[in-house]
């Protein structure tokens, strides 16, 4: 029987998809983040978790960005 599920389709690159998978693993006990893995660039997720994913992904990517050391002292001023 055909089923229609409400949710959010998330379009992202494979890197971000892996990050989300990691999040899903981390929170597995609390809630199910990913409802369906659609394809390389698409995930089907719970619409109430979108904001959570956005901030977490942002945070993770931020951590993994190289920042020039040269500029840091100047930025502090």
């Amino acid at each position: 029987m055909v089923k229609a599920v409400k949710g959010v389709i998330l379009k992202c690159d494979p890197t971000v998809k892996q990050v989300i998978y990691k999040l899903n693993e981390k929170e597995r006990d609390k809630f199910q983040l990913i409802i369906e893995d659609l394809d390389e660039n698409h995930l089907f997720i719970d619409s109430s978790k979108v904001d959570y994913i956005k901030t977490e992904v942002e945070k993770l990517l931020e951590e993994n960005t190289y920042k020039s050391e040269l500029l840091l002292p100047l930025n502090d001023k």
Binding site: V2, S47, V50, K54, V57
Partner: peptide, 22 residues
């Protein structure tokens, strides 16, 4: 572009079709 890595769209997913023709 980096800021827009996630594109989100509310939608309904149709799945579990019995046959391909459906």
């Amino acid at each position: 572009m980096e800021r827009n890595r996630l594109v989100v769209q509310e939608c309904y997913l149709y799945k579990d079709f019995k046959t391909w023709s459906d």
